[in-house]
Design a protein around this nucleic acid. Structure first.
Lengths: 332, 332
DNA sequence: TTGAAAGCGCTAACAT
DNA sequence: ATGTTAGCGCTTTCAA
């Protein structure tokens, strides 16, 4: 910028004015400055600008896996909101590891992102307290923060799961299994709670072997599904229906069921592409990942614009979409 | 940092040394500094650090749509490479708009990202020349740069499409349609070229109504597919097989075919989740989006480490995966 | 082993 | 309308 000023024969501040479109420059001066800018290939250094202004016009997003079909639209939605506010989005995947979430979030804070959207993996977010009080707006999405008060945008996992299981019960099922994510993950715990609530409301006992929580890698999910479907561990017999705890689990279970002779009912948490073209089409409890992301982004920027409201929890409803797999009657 | 130094009763540089793990500090001094850091909740301001060092330890990625199942794993792979090199990833979606691509790329350059990975949407990348000569390493992925020399990591679209069409021909098809992306997109043009090559090699004429390029929104794709399948525009009659130009197109066409009485053969460009569980399972020409991303990231960091090689074009092979839909015989 | 001073490139505040 | 000065928070350089 100094060079531009020298070349245009003007002061530093005049160049700054031109670059930033500030008023108070004669057209003629402006033209000279622009020429110098072009000639020198000058481009404003935003690092310096950021340092001076104290705002980075960037927000960070920490989620589990950018490539997960559930989180990709969420991320895209946050990006759209950021873009609408002139901010860039810095992304990081935590791989469901609390330590990595922490590292990423703190790295983003060190860069002085204006705000942070986090899909929490860890179980203690007190590490963010100093950052939040230092002014970094923070919104949690998909799962609430642990051990601190903060904004959160969630889906109603409990009600969703309860409705899904009630749906299976209404179609005659009595032995229903639940295969979910790691129990330390809030949504997994809530969905399990919903499952239990629906069973209890129908007066059905839950056999211990009907519930399997764990990592969502296909190997684990497949093993648990096969075990439940064989029913050897259970005095009560094999399950005739399954509730799956998220889109990763559902996809694996669909594969397991595809290899089976008998029809097993299935309700999956999360909608997924092509669910309606499978045989049978898959009944799901749909969330709206893009809406989660959008709401989180909006909440974040409202905070950034200085709304001093109390931390807020937004809970979005889920929607049961019957497509066929959830309406399969129990196998005799 | 100044405050920390004051509180610990040491010089500024000593704090800097401790924060950055540089040698030359007695354990006792270090302890005092660390105490002060904790007490004050100090966190290094990376903006200032970046300004001083001239390196941001961040790379930018501009792609079409972060939420597209093809690009999501690509993005994730670039992120992994960046992470391995201690860098953060800033993401932006161009929505297939050249102007937006340009804006995003220049915004990232203004932030002085160390490097840039771009899935080009525009058709002229000369705007990047000053940035590249200013030292911002740039790698194009999925499609080559236009009008500048630069590294590129691509899939072999031409060969992939040619093999796909040859496969359909080998299964008896003579009237084969191609539904692809906008013709200005390099991959779409290459795939069309592959389609034409395979037809020509088999001595088959291509009716004008058998080729439809355009945006990949479901409405357009559906209309074109239905038109080709009805065959009213064509003296040669309706097509008995289709090649689809990318995963978005394939998914829409699968829906169209699902509503049809007669069986139409289909080979889709790009693999996609659950392709093997559809009826019939979908034969695809698979790319490896994660590998594209990884290679691009690796190339980028090799450049950053100062390899002065000529711009390089890496072309990855595609793989035909027969699953059923591509082996359907022609309808009489 | 430690620290003082200079300066990265920009903008805010205050001249002129 | 334009320029000058100070300083954002850090690292680099060089001296103690």
């Amino acid at each position: 910028m100094k060079d531009v000023a020298a070349r245009a024969g003007v002061g530093l501040k005049t160049v700054s004015r031109v670059v930033n479109g500030e008023p108070g420059v004669t057209p003629d001066t402006e033209r000279r400055v622009r020429e110098a800018i072009t000639a020198l290939g000058f481009r404003r250094n935003d690092s310096a600008r950021i340092l001076r202004k104290g705002r980075t016009a960037s927000v960070g997003l920490v989620l589990e896996d950018l490539a997960d079909p559930f989180y990709a639209p969420l991320s895209r939605a946050v990006e759209e909101v950021a873009r609408a506010h002139g901010a860039l989005l810095i992304n990081g995947s935590s791989a469901e590891d609390g330590e990595r979430e922490r590292e990423l979030a703190l790295a983003l804070c060190a860069r002085r992102v204006d705000g942070l959207v986090i899909v929490p993996a860890g179980d203690d977010h007190r590490y963010l307290e100093p950052e939040i009080s230092a002014g970094i707006a923070t919104v949690f999405v998909d799962r609430p923060a642990a051990r601190i008060e903060a904004d959160a945008v969630l889906s109603d996992s409990f009600t969703g799961a309860r409705e899904g299981v009630a749906h299976l019960i209404a179609h005659g099922h009595r032995r229903i299994g639940f295969i979910g994510d790691l129990p330390r993950i809030h949504t997994a715990a809530e969905r399990l709670r919903g499952y239990r609530a629906a069973m209890a409301e129908a007066g059905l006992a839950v056999d211990g072997s009907w519930v399997a929580l764990g990592p969502t890698d296909p190997g684990r999910v497949r093993a648990d599904a096969e075990r439940m479907l064989a029913g050897r561990d259970s005095a009560a017999g094999p399950v005739t229906a399954l509730l799956t705890g998220n889109n990763r689990v559902t996809v694996t279970v669909v594969r397991v069921l595809a290899g089976l002779e008998r029809r097993v009912a299935l309700v999956g948490f999360d909608d997924f592409e092509l669910a309606d073209l499978l045989t049978p089409p898959v009944t799901v409890i749909a969330q709206e990942p893009a809406l989660l992301g959008r709401r989180a982004g909006e909440l974040l920027f409202r905070r950034l614009e200085g709304s001093g409201e109390e931390p807020r929890r937004v809970v979005l409803p889920t929607r049961l979409i019957p497509r066929g797999s959830g309406e399969v009657p129990p196998h005799p």
